[in-house]
């Protein structure tokens, strides 16, 4: 689905990513953990070129997307992203938030988009919020709608950048529940998170990133948490578990 080859990213003199290699296959759920400042969010943001890689290649569905000839908007249509701060469009109501991209990008006409939006709102349990504006919703509701907004484009891959970190504790559950449901439905997901319970339950691969490199990688989440191999991973897990 997506391959990262030898990815480097500098912000001025600061080296944030120092040679990351990763391949995510269809319907894999990859959870990325690591201390703050380790580069995990930057790596995720490089995947849809919200950050431009300093060097290296991002290959999405057999196309090198960080090539200047690629129409990045076309690529992003197939790659959804969910943000820590939800980032719903504050000048648009819920329905308009959901239908904007598919209509503007000519995926669906207005009626089709509205029908699909209503279906998704029912699925996430918020059909009555269709005419509300984002500032009238709780954080958990906003984030579920942000996920629905990404789903409107039928993405092949969903990127989650700490989707529950800005939520009040009692709202984390509803968002994780929706993400778990998506995972079970076969969505390909890359999730940066601090929710270790979610990682254990949903991930089929865990990456531990520190200082811009993948330090440890495991296809067995329970084993990863119970028997971390690297000393750096052990230190990190001992602090947060």
């Amino acid at each position: 689905m997506i391959k990262i080859r030898n990815l480097y990213k500098n912000f001025d003199k600061l080296e944030v990513l120092r040679g990351v290699n990763l391949e995510i296959k269809p319907s894999e759920k990859v959870v990325i953990i690591g201390p703050s400042g380790s580069g995990k969010s930057t790596m995720l943001r490089c995947m849809n070129l919200l950050e431009k890689p300093t060097s290296g290649e991002i290959i999405f569905k057999d196309q090198v997307i960080n090539d200047s000839h690629v129409d990045i908007n076309k690529v992003r249509e197939n790659m959804g992203m969910v943000f820590q701060q939800f980032n719903l469009f504050s000048n648009l109501n819920v329905l308009e938030n959901l239908t904007l991209a598919p209509v503007m990008r000519h995926r669906l006409n207005k009626d089709e988009a509205e029908t699909k939006a209503m279906e998704l709102l029912k699925r996430i349990g918020l059909p009555e919020k269709v005419k509300n504006y984002p500032n009238q919703l709780s954080g958990g509701q906003q984030q579920r709608i942000a996920i629905a907004r990404a789903l409107m484009m039928d993405p092949d891959l969903l990127l989650f950048d700490e989707p529950t970190s800005a939520l009040d504790p009692e709202m984390v559950g509803e968002v994780l529940e929706l993400m778990t449901e998506l995972a079970q439905a076969g969505m390909t997901m890359a999730v940066v998170t601090h929710e270790m319970g979610f990682a254990r339950q949903v991930a089929n691969r865990i990456l531990f990133i520190d200082e811009g490199m993948i330090v440890e990688e495991s296809y067995d989440p329970n084993d990863f948490f119970d028997n971390p191999q690297e000393e750096r991973t052990q230190q990190f897990l001992s602090k947060i578990l």
Binding site: L50, N73, K74, V75, R76, N87, F89, L92, M104
Partner: peptide, 21 residues
């Protein structure tokens, strides 16, 4: 800036993001 990124992440172009958001 987050809303602008969200619009771009959905595939909207710079001009579409400008005009709608």
């Amino acid at each position: 800036a987050g809303e602008i990124e969200a619009a771009r992440s959905l595939g909207l172009s710079y001009m579409q993001t400008m005009s709608k958001i």
